[in-house]
Amino acid sequence: MMETTEQTHYFVPSPSRWPLVGSAALFCLGLGAALTVNSLGVGKVLLALGFAILLWMLFGWFGDVIRESLNGAYHGKEDMSFRWGMGWFIFSEVMFFAAFFGALFYVRTISVPELGDMAHKLLYPDFTAAWPLSTGPGITQHYEAVAAWGLPAINTLLLLTSGATVTWAHWGLIQGKRKQLAAGLALTVLLGASFLTLQFVEYHHAFTELNLTLAAGAYGMTFFMLTGFHGLHVLLGTIILFVVLLRVLRGHFDEHNHFAFEAAAWYWHFVDVVWLLLFVFVYWL
């Protein structure tokens, strides 16, 4: 019978310069954004510098973590900490989107019906309590709502398929099938990029043909805030999965040690679920 050895210590990395570098990046980004908004030319330079420093920090910091992992620094306790950390991060993202969904539900179920009742008819005689909000003089600019059964439906199919491909890749990893792992990840990255491309086409159509912008009342505001932030998360998730794919091609991960892949898959499934809610409550209903 094999004896199991209990982990006797928790890995503590050496002091790192990367938090200080990240602080410098955020300072340049914040100051650059403020100066750019005020039409000062140096603002764009600071923005570019901030993004460059941020990329340097990301490559350097994650590179250190990857090297520590490959050198065997992480064991059971560290792995559990990573899992709790990723779990709480996704929970914070859930709360982030919950705030925007809450704003959408408040407008649709409370504000709009209240503004359409008899008590407000004298103030807003042309207002109709319907969603998407009707347009008219003095209410908001004229616009058209985005139809659900076009590009949004195609994007829904793409994301649902990507959830299946990343799961297929996970099965390949657990079973030691490296080609299946790489193929599943590559397909997931391709589907994520396709989603972003179609969302760009949808936004262009909304701006140029539907006259739908952030200024288009409550509908335009909630539409772009929810779909825009979700698109940003899809972009981040696609980049993460692409990095994981590059690591797979370099021989990283095995059947037992692959938390980075699992974290990316968790995040991607979260993005899928948020999109399903978006499709139902923003596009469809």
Rank of each mutant, 00 (worst) to 15 (best):
L26E: 07
L173Q: 06
V282Q: 03
D254W: 10
A34M: 10
A145E: 08
Q141P: 10
K121P: 01
Y143H: 07
F195C: 00
D272W: 13
L49R: 00
M80S: 12
H233C: 04
F105Q: 10
E114Q: 13
H233T: 01
Y219H: 13
E262R: 15
L187E: 09
A119I: 11
I90D: 01
F195W: 07
T161S: 11
L235E: 00
F127D: 06
T188G: 10
P15C: 06
Q180R: 15
H75P: 00
P19V: 12
R67Q: 15
R108Q: 13
G172V: 08
G32W: 00
R17S: 10
L210H: 00
Q180D: 13
A169P: 01
G220I: 05
E3L: 11
W131T: 04
V112S: 04
F127N: 08
P113M: 02
E3A: 11
L151S: 06
A145N: 09
L198A: 01
A33S: 13
G192Q: 02
M1C: 07
Q141H: 09
M118K: 11
L115T: 00
G228V: 10
L196K: 07
W84H: 11
V248E: 08
G50Q: 03
N257Q: 13
L190D: 04
A186F: 10
H205A: 14
L122S: 09
A216Q: 07
S162I: 03
L159G: 03
E255L: 06
L47I: 12
L198K: 07
V274I: 15
W88F: 15
L122R: 07
R250I: 06
A130H: 04
G150C: 05
E6P: 02
L115M: 12
R83W: 14
F59T: 08
R247K: 14
T128S: 07
G60P: 12
A264T: 08
A147M: 10
S194L: 09
C28S: 15
Y219M: 11
M118F: 06
P152W: 00
G163F: 02
A193L: 13
A153R: 10
H252S: 11
L160I: 14
L31H: 01
H252L: 11
F195D: 02
K179Y: 05
V12Q: 05
G176L: 02
L54A: 15
I53G: 02
G87A: 08
V107P: 00
E262P: 00
S194G: 14
R108W: 03
Q175R: 15
G217Y: 01
R178H: 11
G237Y: 09
V201A: 11
L241W: 00
Q180N: 12
A52I: 13
E6D: 10
A147F: 07
A216V: 07
M95P: 00
Q175Y: 12
H120T: 06
T5C: 03
G138H: 07
V45N: 03
A218I: 05
F89T: 03
L190H: 04
L58I: 11
V243N: 03
T128Y: 04
I139T: 06
E209A: 12
